[in-house]
């Protein structure tokens, strides 16, 4: 399942080779994981709960080190969150409740003692991108679940990262909100063209969003197969109700089912 060969010519920005992650508790989250991420692509990691998707994301972010194997950056140095090259969106909004929305979004910049005026401008731009302009002074508890998640995305985007890592960001939201955020995320991605790695356990969400879906097995997590989603962007409600979409969802569902049986979950 060598992913690198799947698309020749495309340069690789992150490359995971033979990665194993075993926790102190003895649980092996990932084993012999090979995965390549290409610049500007939207790729989803799809798998059942506990298949190590989030662990893979944290390895890429540098929040964890692999037990065995390598995470390499063929394009050059590992980008660091410190310099704002990686944005991370968690499953929960993970906002500081004591700070206003603007304060939360400004965090990555203010930790680097960024110039105040430049920070304000970037925060405003970032809030506008996610449709939260006008809520800068609000506190997180005054926002709905979807708006909190938007604030969280704005915070991840404020440093203009090359790599945006999203760990089941919309899993806790209702369907209407999730659809709207999916649409907005796609529009945003087409506008800024960052590499997005999107972890999800929803087949429908992954097909709707991604150029490429990496289906993973569980316990230990490993790449089961990759599926390219060739449907053109922009994708909208029409795509969501099309026969193509349904067929792709079926194909991915079957792959996921096979992966789940194979993984023994």
């Amino acid at each position: 399942m060598a992913a690198a060969e799947l698309q020749s010519g495309g340069d690789v920005s992150v490359s995971l080779r033979g990665v194993n992650k075993t926790f102190a508790s003895g649980i092996t989250a990932l084993d012999r994981l090979d995965l390549d991420l290409r610049p500007g692509e939207f790729v989803s990691l799809l798998g059942p709960s506990g298949c190590g998707k989030s662990t893979a994301l944290r390895l890429v972010a540098g929040l964890m080190e692999p037990t065995r194997g390598t995470v390499s950056w063929p394009g050059g140095q590992r980008p660091s969150g410190r310099h704002g090259q990686i944005g991370f969106v968690f499953q929960e909004p993970t906002l500081m409740p004591w700070a206003s929305v603007a304060g939360n979004v400004a965090l990555p910049l203010s930790l680097r003692r960024f110039d105040r005026a430049a920070t304000d401008a970037r925060v405003a731009a970032s809030l506008k991108q996610v449709g939260l302009d006008g809520f800068a002074a609000s506190y997180p508890r005054e926002l709905s679940g979807g708006m909190k998640m938007r604030a969280s995305i704005a915070r991840a985007l404020v440093t203009e990262p090359a790599l945006l890592l999203m760990d089941e960001p919309f899993a806790a939201l209702d369907e209407v909100t999730r659809f709207r955020l999916n649409d907005d995320l796609l529009a945003l991605w087409r506008e800024v063209r960052r590499t997005v790695v999107f972890v999800t356990h929803s087949v429908f969400e992954s097909v709707y969003l991604s150029e490429r879906i990496v289906v993973m097995t569980s316990r230990p997590g490993r790449v089961f197969t990759e599926i390219k989603i060739d449907a053109p962007y922009p994708r909208d409600r029409q795509f969501r109700t099309s026969a193509d979409y349904a067929a792709l969802c079926r194909q991915v569902s079957e792959a996921l089912a096979d992966a789940t049986v194979g993984g023994g979950a």
Binding site: G81, H83, I86, F88, L111
Partner: peptide
Amino acid sequence: DHNLADLFRLYG
């Protein structure tokens, strides 16, 4: 919050 702690770590 562990995720917030991770976020602070990510941003150095």
